[in-house]
Design a protein around this nucleic acid. Structure first.
Lengths: 130, 130
DNA sequence: CAGTATCCGATCTGATACTG
DNA sequence: CAGTATCAGATCGGATACTG
């Protein structure tokens, strides 16, 4: 039962709430970006650092560890010199990526509408404020 | 073309990146929770406050404004005493909610696996450190 | 190459008192 | 009822120097 049923008066429990779960997994500025970047196959640390514009080394590391801990990324270390580490999506992350697709699709389809809404909202508030 | 194609060497642009767009819209601790709570029909401020466990008045207000600005919520004020304000999803938010469903579905299906992954990860690190 | 360690400012959140 | 205003604490995130 994917549909989260909410009748009047129901509480959205913080614990065990599937919505919260997704959020916690995917929240943060970079998680989804990394998942998307890793979706086409194993990627190395530096590849990610270069491909995800604006990410710092620190945040890349932290987010990678986080995703690995949740079982979304598989980290493989090759004992070579120089060292090589590959990150690749696990099966459940690959499923997640599929779900994400409908979200990005939504974003693309409504990007203009959302921009317009913002402009309208700001204009209204500006007018109201004098 | 919903599929975000990423060839080796491509950059995930910060601007105009549909992934980023979704994130910015839906990020934050409460946005999605509010969307889910409002999905079944118009809700009042206090209803939301009661149904979303743990949310503070401040964050509810901020998040509502944010969603309203992005054109995801429609705010209706009734000039009654005491005042009454309804929030309801716009059409595009309703679409978003549909997309969210596949995410929550994913969360439910893999909740156990993710928990297990965490435990395993922590145990490993503990063993390595100890 | 693939990180770790440290410092610090920006942002997010919660608690709470007050108001039209 | 439906907020706003203010303050403090927690967390996030970036820059950067250093290392196996």
């Amino acid at each position: 039962m994917p549909q989260a049923k909410i009748d009047a008066g129901d509480e959205i429990a913080v614990e065990a709430c599937p919505v919260r779960e997704v959020l916690d997994r995917v929240a943060g500025k970079w998680s989804i970006l990394i998942i998307v970047a890793a979706a086409r196959g194993p990627v190395r640390f530096t590849e990610l650092e270069r491909s995800i514009e604006g990410i710092s080394r620190r945040m890349l590391t932290l987010t990678l560890r986080h995703l690995e801990r949740d079982g979304l990324l598989k980290r493989t270390v090759y004992a070579t010199v120089p060292p090589r580490v590959d990150y690749e999506l696990t099966d459940i992350a690959r499923e997640l990526h599929q779900s994400l697709l409908s979200l990005t699709d939504w974003a693309e389809r409504h990007r203009a509408a959302i921009s317009a809404a913002r402009v309208a909202y700001d204009a209204e508030r500006l007018a109201a404020a004098g």
